[in-house]
Every structure is written in C-alpha cells, then in structure tokens.
Design a protein around this nucleic acid. Structure first.
Ligand code: MN
Ligand code: MN
Ligand code: ZN
Ligand code: ZN
Lengths: 157, 157
DNA sequence: TAATTTTTGCGTCTCAGTATCAAAAGTTTT
DNA sequence: AAAACTTTTGATACTGAGACGCAAAAATTA
C-alpha cells in the first residue's frame, strides 16, 4: 500500500489540469507536494496545516478546492471513516484494491488486502443487485488487542 | 432482519429509564412508538417529522436527546452511511449481526447476513490486532443492476 | 500594453448536531 | 395540598466542516 511517487503524481495531475483547461499554480503545487509526501490518511484541515508549513500562501479555500480536483483526477480517494469530516487517501493510485479496518475507540486505521473477502464482496454485491465498480469495504472494530499493549489511546479509558 | 416488536421495545426502554432514574414522558413515548413502527434506517430529522405527525408536542431538541438514549439502551444503533448526518437502525435488537450494502449513487441500503463474510471479518480483524466486539462491516457499491430496471434514482443520470 | 480568463483569499452562509437556560412538568417532603 | 426539589422540555444560540459569492490578483492571449 505504498503511495504513488511524487514525480509521477505531479505528472498525472498536470495532464489532468491541461485536459480540463486549468492552470498549475504555486498553491496547487504546494498542496500536491504535501499530499504525496505522506502515505497517511488525512483531513482537509490537516492538509491545510501541513501545506502552510511548506508555503504560507495557501488558503483554506484553495485546499478545499484542490482536494476535489485531486479526487477527480484519481490521485486520491475521498474516505469516510465515520467521523463528521472527510479523510483523503493518497494510496489508491498505487493500490486501488485495498480496504480499511478502523478502531472505533481510537482512530487507528489499518489497511489490508484480502482476495477472499474481495471475492465474497463481489458475490454478495451481485446477489443483492449491486454492481462491482467502485466498491469498497470497511470494517469497524475495536483494537483492544492493542489496548492491552498500551498502543490504543482509547478516549473512554 | 425484522425489528423488535413495539411492546417489547417499550418494556426494555422503561427498564433502562428506571435504572438510570429517568422518566417516561409523552414525548419519549411518541418517539419510541414512531421508531418501532418502521424497520427503515432513518435520520434524526426524519424521526422529528414522523414523530410530530403522531404528537405535535415533540421538539427537535427532544428528538436529538432521545435518540442517544435509545442507542445507549441498545434498542437502536447509530449508523454511518457516508452522508454527513447519522442514520439510526431499529433492527439491531432483533438481528445484531446484520451488515449493510449501500449504493453510492442513490441512497439504497440493503441489509444482509453472511456467515462466510462474518468469519473472514473475524479472521482479518484478529490478524491485524483488532478485537471482535462491536465489529461491523459496510460495503459501498453501485446498484446499476437496479438502475437498468429503473429502480435506482441515480442523481447523476 | 490591453483585454480576457482563471485563481485566489476573505467573508458569509449552510446544515447537522450540541449547549444553554429559563419555564414547565413530575416527584417527594412536610 | 403546598412547598421544595428534580427532571424534562423547547426556544435559541453556538459550533465546526465545508460550500459559495465576490472582488482583487495572477496568468494567458491578443
Ligand atoms: Mn488507504
Ligand atoms: Mn440495518
Ligand atoms: Zn483503538
Ligand atoms: Zn442506486
């Protein structure tokens, strides 16, 4: 589940902008540089902070405008992890078939791939009249395995 | 995936209230009557509308206060279906092991149970250091099977 | 350089949900 | 049953993520 490398990401984004008659600007550059220097799942506000460390001239509005462009171009995916804000995942361009398990106590997110579950997913979807395209699977659980080791910062501890 | 019957639900809620030194009021009664007359997944705003049809004297505030009580008592479950508002599920008391598949185009939600996927879920969770309790699984897909039949009201059609 | 198009940043708005608080309703004590 | 106390209610204000409108700035084209 490694992210796409920064040069390739820039390349792809440039082609996307060109094709939509949009311009590469210093702010957009700062944002995609920041996005593709992490493989963590991040929020818009986090991205704003990080991008500003790199380039002061990045506004909240531009971040909120650029993330949908990155999404549309396929470089990141919008993720819903059950919080009331969106997450973005920079790891999809490179591994489009991974899924996530989320701890509902802390916010630990772990990626995984499983042929078996992917197959079952497809079978279930189909049997219920859903198509396969763009499917995604999320498991919500508790990491008290990790809690016992002191790794899970459970809020209600 | 049938919901618990209304009388049993009221009974359970009464015991819950008693045990927490809370009172059964006409508003709370109207709300749980409404909740357990549907087996649909609903939002707080929907519940407000429906409960008001039954009893004018139900305010938004009371709905937003009662739903967490019903959740805490185990009669409903808070659900996140990827929208920016919560859903509530009245079907958990009776079938606590069901999962959901959601169409990302329309908002169709279909419940399903699968021993196979449940087993895999447990295996994956465990192998990644997550515990089994309170796990839940959500599949996001597109129902273009149904779309072809004109059943899916896809927004971007 | 001038005209045109795109982008930016600020401020305002929306919307679900929470917090506040005084009035109302229910309970317990005298 | 009146007084004292507790819980609940509803109106209103507030919050926080994100969308939107607009005038200024930047980039492109003429
Ligand atoms: Mn991921
Ligand atoms: Mn359900
Ligand atoms: Zn955890
Ligand atoms: Zn659909």
């Amino acid at each position: 589940m490694a992210r796409i490398n920064r040069a390739a990401a820039k390349e792809k984004f440039l082609r996307f902008l060109e094709q939509k008659n949009l311009r590469m600007t210093s702010q957009r550059m700062a944002i995609i540089d920041t996005v593709f220097s992490t493989d963590q799942h991040f929020t818009a506000e986090q991205m704003l902070d990080w991008a500003r460390e790199r380039d002061q001239a990045v506004s909240r509005a531009t971040v909120y405008r650029t993330l949908p462009l990155l999404t549309e171009s396929g470089l990141v995916h919008e993720m819903d992890f059950g919080k009331d804000y969106k997450y973005y995942d920079p790891n999809y361009a490179d591994s489009p078939n991974h899924n996530h398990i989320i701890c509902q106590d802390c916010e630990r997110i772990v990626e995984f791939e499983s042929d078996k579950i992917e197959k079952l997913q497809g079978e279930i979807s189909q049997s219920l009249g859903f198509s396969l395209k763009a499917q995604q699977l999320r498991i919500t659980a508790s990491c008290d395995e990790l809690k016992r080791l002191g790794a899970c910062k459970n809020k209600a501890s």
